[in-house]
Amino acid sequence: MKNFLAFITVLVLGYMIVVSLDNNEAFPAYGEADVSSRVSQAFIDRSVTEDPGDIIFGQATNLESGPANIVTAIVADYRSFDTLGEVTVLFVSSLGVALLLGGKKQKRLELNFHPNFMLRVGSRALFGIILMTGVYIAIHGHLTPGGGFPGGAMIASSMLLLYLADDEFRAKIKGFKMLESFAGTAYVLIGLTGLLLGGYFLENLLDNGVIGDLFSAGIIPIVYVLIGLKVGSEISGIIDNFLTEEGV
């Protein structure tokens, strides 16, 4: 009975929200969002500081923010402070999971599934391929969709594959910790150098080069790779914590 009542209330609420959004004149209907009246128009034609005219892929050089993928431009350049905050969230949650579950000496969780030899060997091969795609996505963040976060997630998924396929396998946690801390510190240091030299925290010091090249958009790709590594190591740390338990 309680569930039914809750269902009714939730339904009525949903209906009310939909109706109120419909006849709310300020809220644009689905699909008719006029981007020009919004802040993001400046991001699209890179005209926050000065107007570079129309941007031709492959020719426009040192625009105010380099990456071809505008979403990466916003995430890593215009609003890169959010991403810093973002990374801290993930850092804290992985630290927290380690605090909650991690003990001194951990050993692999006793699962009743014991993989046979074929699975253990086959997964090694697949591991390499997944890892490479993850790294590729991280590196090409500023050109193609994806970037640090999806890349990092794929790296972690490759680690997960190993964990699942082989029940004695344990990655070297120490290494992840080192990588994570290195990437984080590097990211903040880049920001600080931006503050010291360029006057603004996280400023893009290197020139942006030609839009569309692999080595363009200044510090963005570097930052995104660092983020990819950090996310990868953190999530693998979390996976390790979940799949292990207290024991000699």
Binding site: V48, T49, E64, Y78, F81, F201, E203, N204
Partner: peptide
């Protein structure tokens, strides 16, 4: 006010 990343107010943080 301190602008982060060099982009002024309504656009940057």
């Amino acid at each position: 006010t301190i602008t982060v990343g060099g982009f002024n107010a309504p656009f940057g943080i």
